[in-house]
Design a protein around this nucleic acid. Structure first.
Lengths: 246, 246
DNA sequence: TTACCGCTTAGTGTCCGACAATAAGACAGT
DNA sequence: ACTGTCTTATTGTCGGACACTAAGCGGTAA
């Protein structure tokens, strides 16, 4: 007997509060920056206790839909990318994703990022990127710093393409992947040179507005990374959560 | 004058509760499926009231780190992809991302998905995909159903590649993009035929384990989508939140 | 024995009331 | 107009309370 039973949806009061406010935000009745009534008032409005409202608010807060600049102000939040990044990164770490999985995706995101950056970046932005690259060159030998700067370099490129979807999608992935570099660096000693070469070429290509070249160098750069992972024998190793390292 | 001010981090009790439990999960001291102590006990452990514990738990709950199968059981959750999808989709909708942004990324994710699926999918999986395709063919003319099935088709392909990172990254994007198709469909009448053709060819390529061909057809398929958007003049239109349509 | 059934109980969801700390706004002084 | 003080509303936290129900227990029946 197959009796199609939809799991009944018991909605607790605090959930309803959260959902109602969420719905209003999603429908645009509440716009980012708008201030919400105080807890007591909300409690009255919904006909529940303040405790109940609070639980709902905590949920919305951690959903990133509302936000407290100060304990006194409760306002509709503009969605924060880093919130999502944290969450996605955590999820991937808990899922124990392998470097291979991360790499495969990075292998398409970074070239795309380089391509559209080459197409759209302003000269100022390219200059800033150059500065970041200089820092990276100067940091030769310091692994932790190198990783941090490399990651920043790639994120910057992604931002330059002015594609927020790409930014959102790639950030948690590149975070995990590049951080993981600390595990492979000891095995890939000549990686630094190749990295610098690749970065230089990407910048040069961007100066020339040569999308194809920028894309190609980005791809080669990520391929190099993979070679390092192969040498280190970490292709199917699990990427660690950056936040768990502290 | 640039005075580097780190924003002081006032951690309220409920936050500390949440953070402490989160840390234990991330460190692996608490593994998915583990049951947590009751609220009263937690309150004693942390030396706070139950109300405070509850607020912390609500936060963790909506973070997807813990989860209540029944009100009595509070256990460490295995991260749910759909939670992240919802959140990311909401964020993108609120950021008012354009079809162009969505499309640019989809243009690299879907071909990748097709490629690795062609490489790794089992014959059974390909068969199942074929079935999905048949449903889609049968649904000709019904836009809503077509969109739904198309979306399912692409998601299925992504799953077949056994890359969870790709799955996580592409899902919210494709959701927004394909749902958006309802806005362009009226303008792209011959799209259905091309869609079916593309899907057929992808499946055929997968049967032959021809990664390149699978990738190529996926790319063409997504390109077609873009042509539709161009005809409809929606390249820079804002994608609507699917959840806001209800 | 195993399977079923009602009872007990611990734990949740919600409520109420309270209090110290403090941010925000009003107000006054220069 | 700017700065400093005062008031007050609101938050974070507390403690206690109660109805409801899921889970475990023990007893009964097959």
């Amino acid at each position: 007997m197959s009796l199609t039973s939809r799991p009944i949806h018991v909605t607790y009061a605090y959930q309803q509060v959260a959902e109602e406010i969420e719905a209003q935000i999603l429908r645009g009745e509440l716009k980012p920056g708008d201030q919400l009534p105080g807890e007591t008032e909300l409690a009255q409005m919904f006909g529940v206790t303040r405790s109940t409202v609070r639980e709902g608010l905590r949920q919305l807060e951690s959903d990133g839909l509302v936000h407290r600049p100060s304990p006194r102000r409760l306002e509709v939040a503009v969605p924060q990318a880093d919130q999502l990044t944290t969450r996605a990164g955590r999820a991937m770490a808990l899922m124990k994703v392998s470097f291979r999985e991360l790499w495969e995706v990075t292998m398409v995101t970074e070239p795309l990022a380089a391509r559209i950056a080459a197409e759209r970046a302003s000269l100022d932005e390219i200059e800033l990127l150059q500065g970041l690259h200089a820092d990276l060159v100067a940091a030769e030998g310091q692994m932790a710093r190198t990783i941090e700067l490399d990651e920043a370099f790639h994120t910057r490129i992604a931002d330059m393409g002015k594609n927020r979807v790409l930014g959102l999608a790639r950030e948690p992935i590149s975070l995990l992947l590049f951080r993981g570099f600390s595990q492979i660096a000891p095995y890939a000693t000549q990686f630094y040179k190749r990295q610098i070469e690749a970065h230089s070429n990407i910048i040069a290509a961007m100066r020339d507005r040569d999308c194809d070249r920028a894309e190609k160098w980005a791809r080669m750069h990520i391929e190099d990374f993979w070679r390092g992972a192969q040498i280190a024998g970490l292709e199917d190793a699990v990427a660690l959560n950056p936040r768990a390292l502290s």
